[in-house]
């Protein structure tokens, strides 16, 4: 569906079901340079099971208009604006990679609104490799190829996607190249590199929190994810073996199973 935030049109996938204000809201926030499409194997389940599942395209990404936001703090406030714009008073947040920085910051800023937080491949800080950052800011497609290489674990490089026929490295590459690289990936990488408040923000979080980490994640290693989780009271941690940073595609079923249990327990759906 499309709606406006700060006078710019925002696109959010609703998981194939109509938006219904009566249902609790889950917002899925994608990673650097990507789009709502990365969540297709998680959102549709929640949309069919009593939730409004909104997989948003950040400004300037995917089908959303406007310019990309330049800081994680701006993105966090923007997610809060999305909750208001769709007429909800509260939401559950799910983030991947950069989306984790955004949702951690948002939850710390708006603690009364955010009811659960789910982090996938998250860390308290995501400093960027300077050469990768430079490639992305200079619109070099090699930045996307490097990101897709590093973001997939050894097993993920072979494929074997749960959706028959879908080859996820090429799909991820196509998503990241769907808009001008320097305006999406370049801006996002710089925002991640600049963001220093993750650990402090984590200490303020009181809502139920889940961290899903992967043993072969080179971009946000398990050690970093655990460090972040240790700062959040009562945070749960689930570690997926033989999987890289793109866990929501590489191990889509496993991620959905863990996420389903956590969210339905802590933020129940509207019963039919």
């Amino acid at each position: 569906m499309k709606f406006k935030v700060n006078n710019h049109e925002v696109f959010a996938s609703t998981g194939g079901r109509p938006f219904d204000k009566k249902k609790p809201l889950i917002i899925f926030v994608h990673g650097s340079g990507l789009t709502h499409m990365t969540w297709v194997l998680q959102t549709r389940y929640f949309a069919f099971h009593g939730y409004n599942a909104l997989a948003i395209d950040l400004p300037g990404h995917g089908l959303s208009s406007g310019d990309s936001l330049k800081s994680i703090e701006q993105m966090a406030d923007w997610v809060n604006d999305v909750i208001d714009a769709v007429g909800h008073k509260e939401a559950s947040l799910v983030g991947h990679s950069q989306g984790c920085l955004v949702t951690v910051e948002c939850t710390s800023r708006y603690p009364d609104k955010i009811k659960t937080l789910s982090l996938m491949g998250g860390a308290g800080a995501i400093p960027m490799n300077p050469e990768l950052l430079s490639l992305a800011e200079n619109n070099d497609p090699k930045a996307v190829d490097l990101m897709m290489d590093w973001a997939h674990g050894p097993a993920g490089h072979f494929g074997g996607h749960p959706v028959p026929g879908l080859y996820h490295i090429n799909t991820g590459t196509m998503l990241a190249k769907s808009r001008t690289i320097q305006n999406t990936l370049g801006v996002d990488f710089r925002a991640c590199d600049n963001y220093k408040n993750g650990f402090e923000a984590a200490k303020k979080i009181k809502c139920p929190t889940l961290s899903i980490l992967a043993t072969d994640d080179k971009m946000c290693p398990v050690k970093e994810g655990k460090k972040l989780a240790s700062l959040i009271d009562g945070s749960q941690v689930d570690i997926i073996d033989n999987c890289g940073h793109m866990m929501l595609l590489e191990e889509a079923d496993r991620v959905l199973t863990v996420l389903k249990k956590f969210i339905t327990t802590n933020y129940p759906p509207l019963s039919s």
């Binding site: 998981g15 194997l41 996607h161 749960p162 028959p164 879908l166 889509a252 079923d253």
Partner: peptide, 8 residues
């Protein structure tokens, strides 16, 4: 059947 998840 609803294409909510991958599989056969």
């Amino acid at each position: 059947f609803n294409l909510e998840r991958g599989g056969h």
